[in-house]
Write a protein that binds this DNA or RNA. Structure first.
Length: 506
RNA sequence: GGGCCUGUAGCUCAGCGGUAGAGCAGUGGACUUUUAAUCCAUUGGUCGAGAGUUCGAAUCUCUCCGGGCCUACCA
């Protein structure tokens, strides 16, 4: 297998095997040194990017072949080399795109040295922007310089790099070879920046809270464990941002958000990665409906900002992110999509029996909340293709959310869905410390009944809450999933630069 | 975790019981407007690893190691 071979760090590998291609390139680097040329010079001057050269040449009048009076320095990676004998064309790739350079024997004193240029090297070229007979923007070189000698060949120039493992394990090769990969991660960066602009403009403060925590909180998930040497205490990596951000609202920061990595020691799938990026926002003096308005505004305006449209395609689904989004209650949606009527099946046993009758998986250890969630995932979730807020969840499923007035069984909570999966979650935050304690204790009871994915009692948080948290709307969203949607990537691993892989055996 | 598929040259892939192949990259040669440059010649492989079946295994079987897709659970 290609990717399990350790990259040739040394020309001579174990067993006396020589990486000949690498040895050849190393010899060319040495040849440059012998000629007094540093194959890794400290710096270079660049005056124009590839895109700027293209624009200059585009601006040429009809019949003009050269951009007169311009001396350009371009620099980039050699991605194609066409040796015509006494003239050589090289395509350079830089951050803005590609530019062709033309090196001719009668224009260069060191034309012979071009044989020391390989695909993958970085070179700089000084010359005049011009247009070839076929109209191609080109820099006609009057001199050139080696900027970085590469010791390995880049991926195949036409078919590129497609092996999924190599693409993930050596993302630099993927970025070199695949424009689509560059596009996805450029969009990712711009989306996160646009989210920050959106929230900053609304008066939110961006904060950072601990990743190493005493115990997991804010969600129900298995954590990663580690040890804090200086304190000689065990720690867990956080599974959510929630409880620390609420402490800040208690402290008086009325609008806070954090964009950060969460860690859940659970399975991987097209929409799950053990470390993933969440955004959570907390806003005092609003509720879950206020949050819903903010979320649909945020996502649609970010899409408009970054993509120039709110219409996206994901796994052949045409989705329009334009606000407002559909709102439907959990119970109504369940009825609408043929699930059990939760006004009828109001206990765990009744609901479990009904689900089993319908052939839906209903574990004996699951409480009422889990079973509702199970039923929703089965009947409702796959049908929510256009952005939808699912409102008012069963209380058992949501220990941190405030009850709905007039209905003790429900809480003010929404999850938002699109393309058939969940991508956000919000509550009117529970701020009654006595009830919060009771809800934690109910979770404990579920744990004793065999459900190992429950919220733990957090005494330190309860103590904070006892000091008073104003009415607050909170929200969380998986950034990776949002990026999947906005870039049309069907797998979370395609939107994570370095997704986890098994280590290579020596 | 379960099912299906997959691993062959640096890269992209063919070969599927009978002496390891092609294109690109590399090397040598021709060519001063090419752009997947072209043309001639040529180097390069523990066919993921191990065991087995066989006169003979890249090919069949088993085990292991990697990877992908579908599927079940946490966002």
């Amino acid at each position: 297998m290609q990717a399990s071979r350790p990259p040739g760090r040394f020309v001579r590998l174990e067993g006396g095997h020589v990486d000949e291609l690498m040895a050849l390139r190393a010899a060319k680097a040495q040849e440059l040194r012998d000629a007094g040329i540093d194959p890794y010079p400290l710096r270079t001057a660049r005056t124009h990017t590839a895109a700027e050269i293209a624009a200059l040449v585009d601006g040429l009048a009809e019949g003009e072949a050269e951009v007169k009076g311009i001396d350009a320095d371009v620099a980039g990676r050699v991605v194609a080399k066409r040796d015509m004998g006494k003239a050589t064309f090289i395509d350079l790739q830089d951050g803005s795109g590609r530019v062709q350079v033309l090196l001719r024997q009668n224009a260069l004193a060191d034309y012979d040295t071009l044989r020391l240029i390989d695909l993958g090297d970085f070179i700089g070229v000084h010359g005049v922007p011009m247009r070839t007979r076929t109209g191609q923007a080109t820099v006609a070189a009057t001199s050139w310089a080696m900027l970085t000698k590469a010791l390995h060949a880049p991926p195949e120039k036409f078919h590129g790099l497609s092996d999924a493992e190599t693409r993930q394990r050596r993302r630099y090769l993927d970025l070199m070879a695949n424009e689509e990969t560059r596009r996805v991660f450029t969009i990712r960066s711009r989306v996160v920046a646009a989210i920050r602009r959106f929230l900053d403009a609304r008066g939110f403060l961006e904060v950072e809270t601990p990743i190493l925590q005493e115990s997991e909180s804010g969600a129900a998930a298995r954590p990663f464990y580690t040890h804090f040497n200086a304190l000689d205490e065990d720690r867990v990596l956080r599974i959510s941002l929630e409880l620390h951000l609420k402490r800040l609202v208690i402290g008086g920061f009325e609008r806070v958000y954090e964009i950060g990595r969460n860690f859940r020691n659970e399975g991987m799938s097209f929409k799950h990665n053990p470390e993933f990026t969440m955004i959570e926002t907390y806003e005092a003096y609003t509720d879950y409906l206020g949050v819903a308005e903010m979320v649909e505004q945020m996502v649609s305006s970010v899409a408009e900002d970054v993509l120039g449209t709110t219409k996206i395609t994901f796994r052949d689904m045409e989705i329009d992110l334009k606000a407002p989004w559909r709102r439907v209650t959990f119970l109504d949606a369940m009825k609408e999509y043929g699930g059990p009527d939760l006004d009828v099946f109001t206990t765990a046993d009744a609901l479990r029996d009904e689900l089993r009758k319908r052939g839906v998986d209903a574990p004996t250890t699951a409480g009422y909340g889990k079973l509702c969630d199970e039923a929703m995932s089965h009947y409702v979730e796959p049908n929510l293709v256009q952005p939808t807020f699912l409102l008012d969840y069963p209380v058992e499923l949501s220990p941190l959310a405030k009850r709905k007035p007039g209905n003790d069984r429900l809480v003010e909570r929404f999850e938002c869905f699109m393309a058939g999966f969940e991508c956000g979650n919000a509550y009117t935050e529970l701020n009654d410390p006595i009830e919060q304690r009771a809800r934690f204790e109910q979770q404990l009871a579920l744990k004793e009944a065999g459900d190992d994915e429950v919220e733990l009692v957090d005494e330190d948080f309860l103590f904070a809450l006892e000091h008073g948290m104003p009415p607050t709307g909170g929200f969380g969203m998986g950034i990776d999933r949002l990026i999947m949607l906005l870039t049309g990537q069907p797998s979370i691993r395609e939107v994570i630069l370095f997704p986890p892989l098994k280590s290579l055996k020596e």
